[in-house]
Simulated scan of single mutants.
Amino acid sequence: MEMSAVRNAIADAARAVTLPAGTAALTSTGYVPDAVTAPHFFCAEYSVDYDRAMNRALDEVELTCRVLVGRADDKSAQAILDNLLAGSGPTSLKTAIEAARGAPGDYALGGLAHDLHVTRVQGYRWYEHQSTQYVGAELIIKIIGEG
């Protein structure tokens, strides 16, 4: 798998969320940005388990992504974050990202990976990015594909 392309495709998929009226549109990058325009989703660290099948047939990646929301008002910021972390619905990052799995029998992310699955949310807390504080959380995505 070409991880730069995979990360960019996941960021593209995340942009499909529809936030409530009056909320800024979600910005999204496949890399850790220097500056954040909140709300912002980005792909961060990842780990790779090589050779999950013989002859480099399959690698398994665990990708950590973050979503950060501005904290002008702590209560409304957390409401926006909760919408983004929902398990389903038009505001759900899980739904938007998993839509990039494609139809049954198709490869995920337009052929970049065999499959992906958003497995969990963790680290719901305040984050500091470039000396600015945001409320945010991490999404963990399991991705499998050719080695």
Rank of each mutant, 00 (worst) to 15 (best):
A25W: 10
A96T: 12
S76T: 09
A86Q: 11
K142H: 13
R15P: 09
G123E: 15
A113M: 04
G145K: 06
L81H: 06
S92Y: 08
E60W: 10
V61E: 13
L58Y: 05
A14F: 00
S4D: 13
N83M: 03
R66P: 07
I144L: 14
A25Q: 06
M1K: 11
G70N: 08
A5R: 06
H129E: 02
P104H: 00
G30T: 08
A44E: 11
E138F: 08
D34V: 07
R66W: 04
A108T: 11
L85N: 06
G30K: 04
L26P: 01
A77H: 01
A72R: 12
T37W: 05
L109M: 08
P20N: 10
G111C: 02
L84E: 09
A96S: 12
A79F: 12
D49T: 14
I144Y: 15
E128K: 11
N83F: 02
A100G: 06
N83W: 07
A108C: 07
P104L: 01
R125N: 06
Q133I: 13
P90D: 08
I80R: 00
Q130K: 12
H114M: 15
K94C: 02
R15V: 03
W126A: 15
G70T: 01
T23S: 14
V32G: 08
D59I: 10
S88T: 11
G123F: 01
Q130H: 14
L26N: 06
A35I: 14
I10T: 08
L109A: 05
T119A: 09
D73F: 00
L81E: 05
A57T: 11
H117P: 07
H114P: 11
E45Y: 12
T23L: 11
A77N: 06
A11T: 00
D74V: 10
A16N: 04
A25R: 03
M3H: 11
A108W: 03
G147E: 08
S47R: 15
I143D: 11
R120A: 13
S92F: 05
A113S: 13
L116G: 12
M54V: 15
A53M: 09
A113D: 03
G22K: 00
G111M: 05
A113R: 07
G70W: 00
A24L: 01
T95D: 15
H40L: 02
H114A: 13
A25N: 07
G105T: 06
V32Q: 04
E2K: 09
T132L: 08
K94T: 06
L139Y: 12
P104V: 02
I141T: 03
G70R: 05
G87F: 13
L116H: 07
D49P: 09
D106N: 14
R66A: 11
S131T: 15
L112G: 04
A86W: 03
G147M: 04
A24C: 01
I80K: 03
T23F: 02
R52G: 15
S131K: 15
S88Y: 06
L112N: 03
L68N: 07
S88A: 14
R66T: 08
I141H: 01
D73I: 00
M3S: 13
S92Q: 06
S92L: 05
A35L: 12
G70F: 05
K94P: 05
D106F: 04
S28C: 10
A24T: 00
V135T: 15
